[in-house]
Nucleic acid binder design. Structure first.
Lengths: 123, 123, 123, 123
DNA sequence: GTGGTCTAGACCACC
DNA sequence: GTGGTCTAGACCACG
């Protein structure tokens, strides 16, 4: 597994694992049906507690990214891209709204905010 | 004080207080020199512990939004808008970066992200 | 009385009053026998509480700078300059010692410290 | 941990803890990466409240001397000696200024003050 | 009355 | 186990 963990980050380790696996599934580098490493193997690999990888897998399962077959293992699920993207759009739109508001409080006007985003995106 | 507390929120109460007061100062509805309610009075008003309001005031003090005089009270400080905006820019840029990354995870490409922001800003 | 009070200072107001009167007595601008303003008059003048000026006068009395005659008023005392200076020397030497130690912790060597003092003194 | 607490001192306990740990880090007896005792363990060791050690650690964190990882512990940070010295210089200069003023109050003139410092430094 | 400091508990998320 | 947050008390110096 291609996963990097940062102990300094404020982000919980299980979320870091979740996000990086989610990313690989969405990008297609992990395709449907692929067998995932076992919770224990991954924990050993990443030098984290089994509890932590278990939590990450539970999150991935509940969000529909992987499927777990008892006593066999976990497999990448067939994901519904439309559904995922829809959920993502709603989420991202909400966050953009919030960020625009926060920027205003710092006297950063929407037009200025848009410029910042353009700069970031063009890089 | 015009402050609303949510016990349900993941955000610590002292941060909620901090942000709402900060917003009122930045918006100008609390102007420099205005006397703030005492930490005890505010605690009673908001039905939270004195320590919680104290923490919020400490944050506001360390960020330069208010000034505290022992045995006297706290007062809205003369804020340096230039400085605040600079700090805000750094903060907002960081958050934009993070949001662009999050969007990518949902298969929302930067160009598409930019469109979402444009739509939001033009409203 | 020529006294300036700062509400923002961390120094208690009664100490500010004490130091400024002590200074004037040591400098000679207030000479022995001079009648001091009453506690109440001074409080009114400086816009502080009577308790505060009372505390300052008590300090000045206990340190021998003024003498209070019941129902008459307070008068600048005949000060023993030798004694005062001796006490001061002990105090200042102790503080220099501490400051040299603190400087060392910041990697500021004694020779460097001496230079800083020279610069300050020459101004 | 090599820390001595005085309940008699005017200095708050959390500052005493802060200063002693800061000193050990600056002196190098605590080197970067070293794990600090947990706030609870230290509190028990020093017989003070957890909140007191927490406050000391918060101060150390905000000043960049240690780094704290939630649910992991605190570690001595890689300190920037240049930065520390700069901050120290500002601090020491300020204190020299104050001390020169205090000396004047005791009729110790700047030139005499300089002599005292010389004597102290040459020892 | 004010803020500053401290105490002895408690629950939470995370590991 | 860890640190983060919160509570309900307390005493102090200052005004």
């Amino acid at each position: 597994m291609d996963i990097l963990i940062s102990n300094q980050s404020n982000q919980p380790i299980y979320e870091q694992i979740y996000h990086q696996i989610q990313r690989q599934i969405l990008e297609g580098s992990l395709s449907a049906g692929t067998e995932m490493p076992s919770i224990r193997a991954l924990a050993k690999d990443l030098q984290v507690s089994v509890i932590t990888t278990k939590k990450a897998y539970e999150l991935l399962t509940s969000e529909g990214y992987i499927e777990t077959v008892k006593a066999k293992g976990s497999y990448v699920a067939q994901i519904d891209r439309e559904f995922i993207k829809d959920k993502g759009l709603t989420e991202i739109k909400k966050k953009i709204k919030e960020l625009v508001l926060e920027a205003k409080r710092y006297d950063i006007q929407p037009s200025e905010f848009l410029e910042l985003v353009k700069k970031e995106v063009e890089e």
